[in-house]
Design a binder for these strands. Structure first.
Lengths: 138, 138
DNA sequence: TCCTACAATGGACAATGTCTAAGTCAAGTG
DNA sequence: CACTTGACTTAGACATTGTCCATTGTAGGA
C-alpha cells in the first residue's frame, strides 16, 4: 500500500474534499484506473464532484510526480499511484488486467550509442503483453 | 525503404485507388503518422477520400500484420509500416520526433518468472524517451 | 460486358479530454 | 473569529479521435 494522500499532504498541497477523494480512490498497489473510472468511484463518495475536477486533479498529481500516466491500452490514459519505485507493466491481451513488474537490469543500457541518433536518452517505458492465468484457462 | 504496397498486393488484397494512396503515403522508414495525418496526405492526392476509409484501411493493414500500431504519444495512435523487422521506438520529449531503434538483446528475457504472475508473456513494447539533437541546441 | 461481393462515402454518434466563466472555499491575517 | 484573497470547483460547451451504418460505387471474376 502506498500512501498517496500522505505524500501529497507532505508537499503542502492545498487539500480539499475533492482532492482527498481522488487520492483515496486512486491509492493502492497494481491500481491503473482511467480518468473516467476514477470519476465514477469518486462520485460514489462525493456525488457533486465534476469531471473537470477529476481531470485537473489527476493532471496535478502527475505534474507533482506523485502519480504516473501510463498508456498500456490505446484508448484512455491510466493513472498509477505507485510513483515512488521505478517499474514497468505487464498487460493481459484479453482482459486488460495490468500488473506492476520489475525487470532485471536497466533497459536503458540495452540501447547502444549507434542506435541513439544523437538523442540524450533519459527514460524508458516497457510494456509486456501476454495472457493472464485467468484468461488462459477460459 | 519498405515496400508496403508490394507486400499488400502479394497477399491478394483487393486494390482500390483509396487503398493504394493510403499505402503510398504511409510507406517509408521512420514513418509514424497518425490516422489524421495519413488522411490529410491522402486527400492531397485523392481529394474525395473519406476519413472512414482511412480508418478502415489502416485497421485492415494492421490486421494483416503489415502495419504496426504504436502508442508513443498518449493522444492519437500512430501507424508504422515497418512491420517486417522487430524494433522499438525512441521519442523526443520536446518535438515528438520518432526514430525506429534496435536494442541489443531480447527485452523479454529481462522479466524473471517471479515477476510474470503466471502470465504467458509473448510480446514487449519499449519506448525510449529523450531529447533529440535538434531540440537540445535550441 | 455484366454481376456481385466487397469497398468507399458522409454524416451521425461515441469516447476521451480541454477550456472557460462564474461561483465557492481553504487557509493565512489581523 | 471574521475577513480576504487567490486558488479550487463546477457545469457545460467545445475539441479531438475514433466508430458505425445505410447508401452508393466499383474491382475483378464469370
Amino acid at each position: 500500500m502506498s500512501d498517496l494522500l500522505e505524500r501529497l499532504r507532505g508537499r503542502g498541497w492545498r487539500m480539499t474534499a475533492q482532492r482527498r477523494v481522488v487520492a483515496e480512490v486512486l491509492d493502492g498497489d497494481h491500481v491503473h484506473l482511467t480518468a473516467d473510472e476514477v470519476h465514477a468511484r469518486a462520485v460514489a463518495r462525493l456525488p457533486e464532484i465534476s469531471r473537470a475536477t477529476v481531470y485537473n486533479t489527476l493532471g496535478e498529481m502527475v505534474s507533482l510526480g506523485e502519480v504516473i500516466e501510463v498508456a498500456t491500452d490505446k484508448r484512455a490514459k491510466r493513472y498509477d499511484p505507485n510513483a515512488h519505485r521505478p517499474h514497468q507493466h505487464l498487460v493481459c491481451a484479453r482482459c486488460g488486467a495490468i500488473r506492476d513488474v520489475h525487470p532485471s537490469g536497466n533497459p536503458l543500457t540495452d540501447l547502444p550509442d549507434s542506435e541513439r541518433f544523437g538523442f540524450t536518452v533519459s527514460d524508458v517505458e516497457v510494456t509486456y503483453r501476454g495472457v493472464c492465468p485467468n484468461c488462459a484457462t477460459a
